[in-house]
């Protein structure tokens, strides 16, 4: 508990301050846009995300707490994914909305929801589980950043395709690891739980939308937004959906 009471509190305090400063600057920038303010906002969001990630990793290392049990870790990793992809994806204000919102949401969850996290099953207390969940989180964050960053832009720039590609590839690698994890634990190629299935459905929509947009079909954009919406349903509503499932030991990422 030492980390929680001392260094951890300080780390989270700094992260929270960075986010508040970023939020304030963002509002000021909204009133009078300047490139420098945008850069500072992005930098502050990076600092916050890095500190939150450091806090979560330190907890995992020093307190042996399993990662990605509950939504908080996922949001923090998703914020990092958004921040990584944002420079490729968008310009101006559109590139700032996602990171700040998600980083703030991640911090809120770390501070409020973590004590209510369910106990981890054995299969969740493994590196492979944490890795596949982290890749899913980075991928979801990147997919959202890629879409938010190019709002209303058609045809899209090459950088947008790169941003799409990063999100799609990260999630694809996450599903490959998830499959390996399911195989090592239960001898099945796929763990059929609501969150994983909804993330896969959303990811496939994003992939299809990406292909369609490259092929010049405008409705590819709608498919991508639909995909992101389905992913978010998976992230936030899977626990509620799973309550109606008989015999599901836990909901995974």
């Amino acid at each position: 508990m030492g980390l929680m009471a001392n260094a951890g509190t300080v780390i989270l305090g700094i992260a929270y301050a960075a986010l508040l400063a970023g939020g304030g600057l963002w509002l000021a920038e909204y009133a009078r846009p300047t490139v420098r303010a945008q850069a500072v906002v992005r930098a502050l969001a990076w600092v916050a995300a890095a500190l939150i990630t450091a806090y979560l990793l330190a907890e995992a290392v020093f307190q042996r707490r399993p990662l990605f049990v509950g939504v908080a870790d996922f949001l923090a990793a998703g914020a990092v994914g958004m921040l990584v992809v944002t420079p490729f994806a968008g310009r101006g204000k559109a590139s700032l909305v996602g990171p700040l919102v998600l980083a703030l949401a991640a911090l809120t969850h770390v501070l409020t929801a973590r004590p209510a996290s369910p106990p981890a099953a054995l299969a969740q207390q493994t590196l492979l589980y944490a890795l596949q969940a982290a890749l899913h989180a980075l991928g979801v964050g990147a997919c959202i950043a890629a879409l938010v960053g190019s709002l209303g832009e058609f045809p899209v720039r090459e950088g947008r395709h790169l941003a799409d590609g990063v999100g799609i590839a990260a999630m694809g690698a996450g599903f490959a690891l998830s499959s390996a994890w399911a195989w090592l634990n239960w001898g099945v190629a796929w763990r059929n739980d609501p969150r994983l299935n909804l993330l896969a459905a959303g990811w496939l929509c994003v992939v299809a939308g990406h292909v369609l947009r490259r092929d010049g079909a405008r409705w590819g954009l709608a498919a991508q937004w639909l995909g992101v919406a389905v992913m978010l349903v998976g992230v936030f509503a899977a626990d509620l959906i799973a309550a109606g499932w008989p015999g599901l030991a836990f909901v995974a990422w």
Partner: peptide, 10 residues
């Protein structure tokens, strides 16, 4: 395929 996964998620 996404539709099939969506059904399996609900």
């Amino acid at each position: 395929t996404a539709l099939a996964f969506f059904i399996a998620g609900i």
